[in-house]
Simulated scan of single mutants.
Amino acid sequence: MTRDSLAPQAYWDQWIEHSHKRIETMLKKSKEPSGDPRYRPQYFFEIAREYWQLMFERYSRGDSVSELTQYFPGLLDAWEESERLGTEVFSPQQQISRRSWITNLDKYILCFWLTGLALALEIPDEQWQRLTALMGNEGEDVLLDRIIASRDHGRAIGTALCHPKPYARLLDAINALPSDQPRILRQFVENWYAELDRPTKKEGVTAIYDRPYWYGFDELIEGGAYFGFWCVEAVAAVKVFQLDDSLCLGLPHYPGDLLRGPDTTLQEVDELADHVTKTNIPPVRRSLLKRLFGRE
Protein backbone atom coordinates (compact mmCIF):
# COMPACT_ATOMS: atom_id res chain seq x y z
CA MET A 1 0.00 0.00 0.00
CA THR A 2 1.38 3.40 -0.97
CA ARG A 3 2.07 5.85 1.84
CA ASP A 4 1.61 8.89 -0.39
CA SER A 5 -1.89 9.22 -1.81
CA LEU A 6 -0.98 11.99 -4.28
CA ALA A 7 0.33 9.42 -6.76
CA PRO A 8 -0.81 5.85 -7.56
CA GLN A 9 1.29 2.71 -7.32
CA ALA A 10 2.02 2.76 -11.04
CA TYR A 11 3.57 6.22 -10.76
CA TRP A 12 5.98 5.12 -8.05
CA ASP A 13 6.86 1.92 -9.93
CA GLN A 14 7.67 3.87 -13.09
CA TRP A 15 9.76 6.60 -11.50
CA ILE A 16 11.61 4.39 -9.04
CA GLU A 17 12.78 2.28 -11.97
CA HIS A 18 13.72 5.49 -13.77
CA SER A 19 15.73 6.70 -10.76
CA HIS A 20 17.68 3.45 -10.56
CA LYS A 21 18.52 3.64 -14.26
CA ARG A 22 19.42 7.32 -14.05
CA ILE A 23 21.87 6.70 -11.19
CA GLU A 24 23.46 3.84 -13.14
CA THR A 25 23.78 6.03 -16.24
CA MET A 26 25.18 8.99 -14.33
CA LEU A 27 27.78 6.85 -12.55
CA LYS A 28 28.98 5.42 -15.87
CA LYS A 29 29.13 8.87 -17.42
CA SER A 30 31.05 10.22 -14.42
CA LYS A 31 33.98 7.94 -15.34
CA GLU A 32 34.28 9.52 -18.77
CA PRO A 33 36.41 12.62 -19.52
CA SER A 34 34.50 15.80 -18.76
CA GLY A 35 33.87 18.40 -21.41
CA ASP A 36 33.79 21.10 -18.73
CA PRO A 37 35.59 20.18 -15.48
CA ARG A 38 33.90 23.12 -13.75
CA TYR A 39 30.60 21.26 -13.88
CA ARG A 40 31.85 18.01 -12.33
CA PRO A 41 31.27 19.01 -8.67
CA GLN A 42 27.64 19.80 -9.43
CA TYR A 43 27.28 16.61 -11.49
CA PHE A 44 28.35 14.43 -8.55
CA PHE A 45 26.09 16.38 -6.23
CA GLU A 46 23.18 15.63 -8.56
CA ILE A 47 24.03 11.93 -8.29
CA ALA A 48 23.79 12.27 -4.51
CA ARG A 49 20.46 14.04 -4.98
CA GLU A 50 19.16 11.14 -7.07
CA TYR A 51 19.95 8.80 -4.18
CA TRP A 52 18.07 10.75 -1.52
CA GLN A 53 15.11 11.38 -3.82
CA LEU A 54 15.02 7.64 -4.55
CA MET A 55 14.86 6.97 -0.81
CA PHE A 56 11.81 9.22 -0.59
CA GLU A 57 10.21 7.64 -3.67
CA ARG A 58 10.53 4.18 -2.18
CA TYR A 59 9.18 5.34 1.16
CA SER A 60 6.25 6.98 -0.65
CA ARG A 61 5.51 3.74 -2.50
CA GLY A 62 5.24 1.88 0.77
CA ASP A 63 8.47 -0.12 0.61
CA SER A 64 10.07 -1.53 3.74
CA VAL A 65 11.94 1.13 5.67
CA SER A 66 14.94 -1.18 6.09
CA GLU A 67 15.41 -1.16 2.29
CA LEU A 68 16.35 2.53 2.39
CA THR A 69 19.69 1.98 4.13
CA GLN A 70 21.26 0.53 0.96
CA TYR A 71 21.40 3.99 -0.65
CA PHE A 72 23.49 5.75 1.99
CA PRO A 73 26.90 4.47 0.77
CA GLY A 74 26.35 5.65 -2.81
CA LEU A 75 24.94 8.95 -1.62
CA LEU A 76 27.94 9.60 0.60
CA ASP A 77 30.43 8.59 -2.11
CA ALA A 78 28.92 11.01 -4.61
CA TRP A 79 28.63 13.87 -2.13
CA GLU A 80 32.24 13.42 -0.97
CA GLU A 81 33.47 13.48 -4.58
CA SER A 82 31.44 16.63 -5.20
CA GLU A 83 33.06 18.32 -2.21
CA ARG A 84 36.55 17.19 -3.24
CA LEU A 85 36.15 18.51 -6.76
CA GLY A 86 34.49 21.67 -5.52
CA THR A 87 37.60 22.79 -3.67
CA GLU A 88 39.33 23.00 -7.05
CA VAL A 89 36.52 24.82 -8.84
CA PHE A 90 34.58 27.09 -6.48
CA SER A 91 35.88 30.27 -4.90
CA PRO A 92 35.90 30.49 -1.08
CA GLN A 93 32.77 32.66 -1.23
CA GLN A 94 31.00 30.20 -3.53
CA GLN A 95 31.89 27.32 -1.22
CA ILE A 96 30.41 29.18 1.74
CA SER A 97 27.19 29.95 -0.14
CA ARG A 98 26.84 26.28 -1.17
CA ARG A 99 27.47 24.90 2.31
CA SER A 100 26.10 27.45 4.78
CA TRP A 101 22.97 26.57 6.70
CA ILE A 102 22.22 30.24 7.24
CA THR A 103 22.25 31.32 3.61
CA ASN A 104 21.38 28.03 1.91
CA LEU A 105 17.95 26.76 2.95
CA ASP A 106 18.22 23.70 0.69
CA LYS A 107 21.46 22.65 2.41
CA TYR A 108 19.87 23.07 5.84
CA ILE A 109 16.82 20.99 4.93
CA LEU A 110 18.95 18.32 3.25
CA CYS A 111 21.11 17.99 6.35
CA PHE A 112 17.99 17.76 8.51
CA TRP A 113 16.48 15.10 6.26
CA LEU A 114 19.62 12.98 6.13
CA THR A 115 20.13 13.32 9.88
CA GLY A 116 16.59 12.13 10.49
CA LEU A 117 16.94 9.23 8.08
CA ALA A 118 20.34 8.27 9.49
CA LEU A 119 19.03 8.28 13.06
CA ALA A 120 15.82 6.42 12.22
CA LEU A 121 17.66 3.82 10.11
CA GLU A 122 20.56 3.63 12.59
CA ILE A 123 23.26 3.70 9.92
CA PRO A 124 26.73 2.39 10.90
CA ASP A 125 29.16 4.67 12.74
CA GLU A 126 31.49 4.93 9.73
CA GLN A 127 28.68 6.27 7.56
CA TRP A 128 27.48 8.59 10.32
CA GLN A 129 30.93 10.12 10.69
CA ARG A 130 31.18 10.69 6.94
CA LEU A 131 27.73 12.28 6.95
CA THR A 132 28.47 14.72 9.79
CA ALA A 133 31.73 15.72 8.09
CA LEU A 134 29.82 16.52 4.90
CA MET A 135 27.11 18.46 6.72
CA GLY A 136 29.57 20.69 8.58
CA ASN A 137 28.17 23.90 10.13
CA GLU A 138 28.96 22.76 13.67
CA GLY A 139 27.74 25.27 16.23
CA GLU A 140 25.52 27.13 13.74
CA ASP A 141 22.00 26.05 14.71
CA VAL A 142 20.45 25.46 18.12
CA LEU A 143 17.96 22.91 16.76
CA LEU A 144 19.81 20.77 14.24
CA ASP A 145 23.04 20.83 16.27
CA ARG A 146 21.17 19.44 19.28
CA ILE A 147 19.73 16.63 17.18
CA ILE A 148 23.07 15.74 15.61
CA ALA A 149 24.72 15.88 19.05
CA SER A 150 22.51 13.00 20.19
CA ARG A 151 24.95 10.73 18.34
CA ASP A 152 27.92 13.08 17.85
CA HIS A 153 28.27 13.80 21.55
CA GLY A 154 31.10 16.30 21.35
CA ARG A 155 29.37 18.55 18.83
CA ALA A 156 29.13 22.27 19.62
CA ILE A 157 25.57 23.60 19.86
CA GLY A 158 24.53 26.83 18.19
CA THR A 159 22.67 29.53 20.07
CA ALA A 160 20.42 30.77 17.26
CA LEU A 161 17.89 29.15 14.94
CA CYS A 162 18.93 29.54 11.30
CA HIS A 163 15.40 29.35 9.92
CA PRO A 164 12.70 30.27 12.47
CA LYS A 165 10.05 29.78 9.79
CA PRO A 166 8.99 26.98 9.96
CA TYR A 167 11.36 25.46 12.55
CA ALA A 168 10.56 27.59 15.59
CA ARG A 169 7.55 25.37 16.31
CA LEU A 170 9.72 22.24 16.31
CA LEU A 171 12.15 23.85 18.73
CA ASP A 172 9.19 24.89 20.88
CA ALA A 173 7.95 21.28 20.92
CA ILE A 174 11.33 20.03 22.10
CA ASN A 175 11.52 22.64 24.85
CA ALA A 176 7.89 22.31 25.98
CA LEU A 177 6.51 20.41 28.94
CA PRO A 178 5.81 16.76 28.07
CA SER A 179 2.07 17.39 28.30
CA ASP A 180 2.28 20.12 25.65
CA GLN A 181 4.72 18.44 23.28
CA PRO A 182 2.23 16.35 21.23
CA ARG A 183 0.06 19.37 20.44
CA ILE A 184 2.97 21.64 19.47
CA LEU A 185 4.60 18.89 17.41
CA ARG A 186 1.36 18.43 15.50
CA GLN A 187 1.17 22.17 14.86
CA PHE A 188 4.67 22.07 13.44
CA VAL A 189 3.88 19.19 11.07
CA GLU A 190 0.59 20.75 9.97
CA ASN A 191 2.26 24.07 9.13
CA TRP A 192 5.63 22.76 7.91
CA TYR A 193 4.96 22.74 4.17
CA ALA A 194 2.93 25.95 4.01
CA GLU A 195 5.53 27.88 6.01
CA LEU A 196 8.33 26.82 3.68
CA ASP A 197 6.70 29.07 1.07
CA ARG A 198 8.58 32.03 2.47
CA PRO A 199 8.41 35.62 1.18
CA THR A 200 11.60 37.33 0.12
CA LYS A 201 13.24 39.32 2.90
CA LYS A 202 13.85 42.98 2.16
CA GLU A 203 16.89 43.34 4.37
CA GLY A 204 19.35 41.33 6.43
CA VAL A 205 20.66 37.84 5.73
CA THR A 206 18.39 35.76 3.54
CA ALA A 207 18.60 32.31 2.00
CA ILE A 208 19.83 31.89 -1.56
CA TYR A 209 16.36 30.60 -2.33
CA ASP A 210 13.44 31.62 -0.18
CA ARG A 211 11.81 28.24 -0.49
CA PRO A 212 13.24 24.77 -1.22
CA TYR A 213 13.94 23.67 -4.79
CA TRP A 214 11.31 20.91 -4.55
CA TYR A 215 8.49 23.16 -3.37
CA GLY A 216 5.52 22.75 -5.73
CA PHE A 217 6.76 19.52 -7.29
CA ASP A 218 3.31 18.04 -6.63
CA GLU A 219 2.19 20.06 -9.65
CA LEU A 220 4.81 18.27 -11.78
CA ILE A 221 3.77 14.67 -11.06
CA GLU A 222 3.28 13.82 -14.73
CA GLY A 223 6.92 14.60 -15.42
CA GLY A 224 8.19 12.49 -12.54
CA ALA A 225 9.61 15.35 -10.48
CA TYR A 226 7.53 14.61 -7.38
CA PHE A 227 9.14 12.32 -4.80
CA GLY A 228 6.91 13.00 -1.80
CA PHE A 229 6.72 15.77 0.77
CA TRP A 230 7.85 14.19 4.05
CA CYS A 231 8.65 16.11 7.21
CA VAL A 232 11.60 13.98 8.30
CA GLU A 233 12.63 16.86 10.56
CA ALA A 234 9.79 15.92 12.93
CA VAL A 235 10.87 12.26 12.94
CA ALA A 236 14.41 13.31 13.85
CA ALA A 237 13.15 15.24 16.88
CA VAL A 238 10.81 12.43 17.94
CA LYS A 239 13.63 9.88 17.71
CA VAL A 240 16.12 11.95 19.72
CA PHE A 241 13.89 13.52 22.35
CA GLN A 242 11.33 10.71 22.65
CA LEU A 243 8.43 13.01 21.84
CA ASP A 244 4.90 11.65 21.78
CA ASP A 245 3.98 11.74 18.08
CA SER A 246 0.55 10.10 18.36
CA LEU A 247 -1.24 13.28 17.27
CA CYS A 248 0.84 13.35 14.08
CA LEU A 249 0.08 9.80 12.92
CA GLY A 250 -1.90 9.95 9.72
CA LEU A 251 -1.05 13.55 8.86
CA PRO A 252 -0.16 13.79 5.14
CA HIS A 253 3.43 14.95 5.64
CA TYR A 254 4.41 12.90 8.71
CA PRO A 255 6.58 9.83 7.88
CA GLY A 256 5.86 8.03 11.13
CA ASP A 257 6.57 4.62 9.63
CA LEU A 258 10.28 5.48 9.76
CA LEU A 259 10.03 4.93 13.52
CA ARG A 260 7.73 1.91 13.46
CA GLY A 261 8.72 -1.57 12.41
CA PRO A 262 6.69 -3.85 10.16
CA ASP A 263 5.52 -5.89 13.15
CA THR A 264 3.27 -3.16 14.58
CA THR A 265 0.12 -4.91 15.77
CA LEU A 266 -3.45 -3.88 15.12
CA GLN A 267 -3.98 -3.54 18.89
CA GLU A 268 -1.11 -1.04 19.11
CA VAL A 269 -2.52 0.98 16.24
CA ASP A 270 -6.00 0.96 17.78
CA GLU A 271 -4.57 2.15 21.10
CA LEU A 272 -2.85 5.06 19.34
CA ALA A 273 -5.97 5.84 17.34
CA ASP A 274 -8.13 5.79 20.47
CA HIS A 275 -5.74 8.21 22.14
CA VAL A 276 -6.04 10.56 19.18
CA THR A 277 -9.84 10.21 19.13
CA LYS A 278 -10.00 11.35 22.77
CA THR A 279 -8.29 14.57 21.72
CA ASN A 280 -11.24 15.27 19.37
CA ILE A 281 -9.25 14.87 16.14
CA PRO A 282 -11.18 11.95 14.54
CA PRO A 283 -9.83 12.30 10.94
CA VAL A 284 -6.43 11.02 12.06
CA ARG A 285 -7.92 7.71 13.20
CA ARG A 286 -9.37 7.02 9.76
CA SER A 287 -6.24 7.84 7.82
CA LEU A 288 -4.00 5.97 10.26
CA LEU A 289 -5.98 2.75 9.99
CA LYS A 290 -6.30 3.07 6.24
CA ARG A 291 -2.60 3.76 5.80
CA LEU A 292 -1.35 0.91 7.97
CA PHE A 293 -3.96 -1.78 7.37
CA GLY A 294 -6.14 -0.75 4.45
CA ARG A 295 -9.25 -0.65 6.58
CA GLU A 296 -11.36 1.95 8.38
Rank of each mutant, 00 (worst) to 15 (best):
L27T: 04
R58F: 01
R98K: 15
R151A: 10
Q42K: 09
T264F: 12
E88K: 12
L117Q: 05
F72V: 07
S97T: 10
R58S: 09
D263Q: 14
L292K: 12
F72M: 08
C162A: 11
I174W: 01
R98T: 11
F44T: 00
L134G: 11
A133K: 15
R61T: 01
T115D: 10
L68R: 06
I147F: 00
S91F: 12
K239F: 05
L110G: 05
T159D: 09
I47E: 07
S91N: 09
P212G: 09
P41A: 02
K31I: 02
I102G: 11
T132A: 10
L119H: 13
W79M: 08
E57R: 10
L247D: 06
L121K: 13
Y226T: 02
L220P: 00
L288D: 07
V142D: 01
Q53M: 12
P212Y: 05
R99W: 11
G256P: 03
N175M: 10
V240I: 03
K165H: 03
G216C: 07
E17Y: 08
H253C: 04
I147T: 03
L54D: 07
G204M: 07
Y215Q: 12
Q93C: 04
R198D: 09
L249T: 05
E83V: 09
L75I: 02
G154F: 02
R155V: 02
D245L: 00
K107N: 14
P178F: 09
Y39D: 14
L177H: 14
A7W: 06
E271W: 11
T159W: 00
H153K: 14
S64P: 04
L76V: 04
K28T: 08
K28H: 12
V235L: 02
G250T: 05
I96K: 13
E140F: 02
P41D: 03
R22Q: 11
P282R: 10
F188K: 02
N280W: 06
R40H: 04
E80K: 07
F90Y: 15
G250D: 06
L272D: 15
W15K: 04
A7C: 15
D106V: 08
Y71V: 00
A225I: 08
Q95E: 13
L170K: 01
F217P: 01
D172G: 03
V235M: 03
V284Q: 14
E233D: 03
W128Y: 12
L243E: 00
K278W: 04
A48E: 08
Y51K: 02
T132M: 12
V142L: 08
Y193E: 07
E17P: 01
M135A: 15
R58W: 05
D197Y: 09
P164R: 03
T2C: 11
L220K: 14
E190F: 00
D257R: 15
P182G: 12
L110K: 10
I96Q: 13
T200Q: 13
S19M: 03
T103K: 12
L105K: 13
L75E: 01
R291T: 12
L143Y: 00
M1A: 14
L54N: 11
S19N: 10
I208V: 14
W192C: 03
R155Q: 05
Q181K: 07
